[in-house]
C-alpha cells in the first residue's frame, strides 16, 4: 500500500493497535510540553505541536548506551538492542538527521556502529510534514524543508480532517498493509491537499543563503571573526545536545569493586576538556577554537567527507541557546568573508 488516509481522531486507535507488536513512540502532551514518549494504554497522541525539545536521535543513539560489562576482568558483551519500534510524529528535519547519522555510523571509516545501525533496522520512522515550521527553523536553506522525505519510512500529511500516509520505503509499505483495516483510500480532496502542502514546501524561500559558504569556510580558518562570534558563548554545550545531527560521544568505565561496565555517553566539542590530552596539551584551548570546530564540522568537514551538511535547520540551537547566539546570524557573518585565497587576493581585504 503506498498511500492511505485515516481520520485524525482515529490515529490513537492505530498507534495503540501497533503498540501490541511494536514499542510505539508518539507525541503526548505533558505538563508544559509535547514529548515523544513510549505510548502507554492510557495515553492519547496529540498533533498539537511544532517540534519537540528533544530530537528523535536519542531513540537511535541514546544518551547512555551499554557497551559491555566485566567482572574480575572477564568481559561480557552487552546484547544488541532488538526491540522493534515505531516512531510517529517526527518532523522531516529530524528524519533527515537520521539519514545523515546513517552515513557516519554506517560505513564511514570502515566500521559500522552496531548499536545505532541495529536500531535503524528495528525502527520504523513515520514523519509528519510541517504546515508551518517554527520561526527559528531554517530547514529549506539547510537542504530539508517542511515536506522533506529523507530518513523516514512514511511521510504523513495533515490534509484537514484526515491524515494522509505516504510510504517512502518497503518497510513503510508493509506497515500500511499490516494496518490497512484502520486506513482508507485517499479521496481526491485529500490528494489535492497533500499536493498543496508539497508545492508550498517547494515554493518556500530559503531562510538564509548558504551558497558558497563551503569555499569561504575553507579559506578563513584563522579569521578573527571566530573570536567575535564566540565572545558571548558560554560553552555550555546545549546546542550540541539538542542538535539532531550532533553525534560526538565519550566511552568511560564505571567500576564497583571487581565489577563494572563500559558505557558510551553523549559528549560535546564545546566542552573545554573534549580534546584535552593527558599531557596537558589542548589543541582547542578556548571558546573560539571550539565554536569554529562546531561550525566547520557541520558546514565543511562533513561536506568534504560525506557530501552532506550536518545541519537540518531544525532551529533548536537558535531557540534554546541561553545567550541567543544565533547560528543563522553566525552563518550570515561567515558568508560575509572573502572566498578568495589570501595569495590571490590583491585588494587587501
Amino acid at each position: 500500500m503506498k498511500q492511505a488516509t485515516i481520520g485524525k481522531k482515529e490515529i490513537g486507535k492505530l498507534l495503540h493497535a501497533a503498540a501490541s507488536t511494536y514499542k510505539v513512540y508518539a507525541p503526548v502532551a505533558e505538563a508544559d510540553d509535547v514529548r515523544l514518549v513510549g505510548l502507554e494504554p492510557d495515553m492519547e497522541p496529540t498533533l498539537e505541536y511544532t517540534n519537540f525539545k528533544r530530537s528523535a536521535k536519542e531513540l537511535f543513539f541514546p544518551a547512555c548506551e551499554l557497551i559491555c560489562t566485566y567482572e574480575n576482568e572477564t568481559l561480557t558483551e552487552a546484547p544488541l538492542p532488538d526491540e522493534k519500534f515505531v516512531v510517529f510524529g517526527v518532523r522531516p528535519c529530524d528524519a533527515l538527521a537520521l539519514a545523515l547519522l546513517d552515513k557516519v555510523f554506517g560505513e564511514f571509516g570502515g566500521s559500522r556502529d552496531p548499536y545505532y545501525m541495529k536500531r535503524r533496522e528495528n525502527g520504523l520512522v513515520i514523519a509528519l510534514a510541517c504546515l508551518e515550521p517554527e520561526d527559528t527553523a531554517f530547514c529549506t536553506a539547510a537542504g530539508s524543508g517542511p515536506a522533506g522525505t529523507d530518513g523516514a519510512d512514511i511521510l504523513v500529511y495533515d490534509v484537514g480532517k484526515e491524515l494522509l500516509f505516504e510510504a517512502l520505503s518497503e518497510k513503510g509499505e508493509a506497515f500500511l498493509s499490516d494496518y490497512q483495516k484502520f486506513l482508507g483510500k485517499p479521496g481526491a480532496a485529500a490528494k489535492k491537499a497533500r499536493d498543496r502542502i508539497v508545492e508550498k514546501a517547494k515554493a518556500r524561500a530559503a531562510e538564509l543563503d548558504l551558497h558558497g559558504l563551503k569555499q569561504k569556510l575553507e579559506r578563513n580558518f584563522d579569521s578573527p571573526l571566530w573570536k567575535e562570534i564566540s565572545e558571548i558563548c558560554l560553552g555550555c554545550g546545549l546546542c550540541t545536545y539538542q542538535c539532531p545531527t550532533c553525534h560526538c560521544f565519550d566511552i568511560t568505565d564505571e567500576v564497583q569493586g571487581r565489577k563494572g561496565r563500559r558505557i558510551r555517553t553523549w559528549d560535546s566539542c564545546q566542552y573545554a576538556l573534549f580534546t584535552h590530552h593527558a599531557s596537558g596539551h589542548n589543541p582547542r584551548p578556548s571558546k573560539n577554537e571550539r565554536m569554529r570546530q562546531r561550525v566547520l564540522h557541520k558546514f565543511l568537514y562533513t561536506v568534504e567527507n560525506l557530501g552532506e551538511t550536518f545541519c537540518v535547520g531544525c532551529g533548536r540551537c537558535v531557540r534554546n541557546c541561553p545567550v541567543n547566539l544565533d547560528l543563522r546570524e553566525t552563518l550570515k557573518s561567515l558568508q560575509g568573508l572573502s572566498a578568495q585565497d589570501k595569495a590571490k587576493d590583491n585588494s587587501g581585504t
Partner: peptide, 17 residues
C-alpha cells in the same frame, strides 16, 4: 590526539576534515 572510539565515529580526534 585524544581519542575514544578509534574508528571515526565519536568526533573527537579530527584535524580539519
Amino acid at each position: 590526539m585524544r581519542m575514544k572510539c578509534g574508528i571515526g565515529k565519536c568526533g573527537r580526534c579530527n584535524i580539519g576534515r
